[in-house]
Write a protein that binds this DNA or RNA. Structure first.
Length: 292
DNA sequence: AGCACA
């Protein structure tokens, strides 16, 4: 009920691609030397991701792809078109990129809002490597207010290292003010969102917390099976299972907010053997679990 | 939609 007004949400959405990801329409193309020209199609290892909520974090993109085989690195890009955000994920080869594409395309990224991912092959591969020491996430901010005067990696290659939207004539290759940020600075932008705070809030208004609230568990859910599911997440500390009325809920504590977010990402909607009402529903808890 | 333990 307290969803943010959808007024700022630009319903721009890339249309279905003109070209399917296979070689349809390429029958008349002469022999393509895989030398100097940019590899067409078959050599694309980078995915273009749209359909993201405007408050998506680079960390979330990273968590989305990090378990996919062959994943290398990803970028989050503020397009400057409203609050629209797109992402690029790069894999070791075309096959693993296609595998990730097929397994994640159309997946509901945010169960709260129902926004689902739209993934296509990018036009060109991302070239930026994830440099250690510069932060784990790469954020490209092309929003109108270029409040970042630092340009550490702005000109490390003359190529169009930035795969633009596959279907948008408006993809202007002006100047990529590429700044590697931490995730905190992502939405601290005074251009269009003056209401945003430094604290990270989920779409439903809940606040990020290192403890997770887990609901939609089956009535026969046991602490052990939940622990088993949670222990595959890094930073998992402890679990408390409480039966409220008939439906049990659980609280899972993590080392930090980031690990809790990763776990929520990894386990959201997943089924336990005791599940009888669909997958787990995970949110940030309203307060952190007391110290053990 | 449902959020406890101190």
């Amino acid at each position: 009920m307290t969803h943010p007004p959808p007024l700022r949400y630009d319903p721009y959405y890339p249309q279905p691609p003109y070209f399917p990801p296979e070689n349809y329409g390429f029958s008349t193309i002469p022999t393509v030397p895989a030398t100097t020209t940019r590899d067409p199609k078959g050599g694309i290892n980078t995915l273009f991701v749209s359909g993201l909520p405007d408050d998506v974090k680079a960390r979330e993109i990273h968590n989305l792809f990090r378990r996919r085989p062959g994943f290398e690195f990803c970028q989050l890009k503020y397009t400057g078109r409203g609050n629209q955000v797109v992402a690029f994920a790069t894999f070791v080869n075309h096959q693993s990129a296609m595998a990730a594409l097929h397994s994640l395309n159309g997946v509901k990224f945010d169960p709260q809002t129902g926004s689902s991912l739209h993934i296509e092959l990018a036009r060109s591969n991302s070239r930026r490597k994830n440099k250690p020491g510069s932060g784990p996430y790469i954020v490209i901010d092309k929003r109108t207010k270029s409040s970042n005067d630092a340009h550490e990696t702005s000109s490390d290659d003359g190529d169009s290292d930035d795969p633009s939207r596959p279907n948008n004539p408006d993809s202007a290759n002006k100047d990529d003010s590429v700044v590697e940020k931490s995730e905190v600075a992502a939405e601290a932008d005074n251009t269009l969102a003056p209401e945003t705070e430094q604290v990270e809030k989920a779409v439903d208004g809940t606040q990020a917390c290192s403890t997770l609230f887990i609901a939609n568990l089956g009535p026969l859910c046991t602490e052990d099976e939940l622990k088993q599911a949670l222990s595959q997440c890094p930073g998992f500390n402890s679990l408390k299972l409480r039966a409220r009325g008939g439906m049990p809920v659980a609280f899972a504590d993590f080392e930090g907010v980031e690990q809790a977010s990763e776990a929520m990402n990894a386990l959201q909607g997943s089924l336990l053997s005791s599940s009888d009402r669909g997958g787990m529903h995970i949110e940030y808890a309203r307060s952190k679990m007391r110290k053990p």
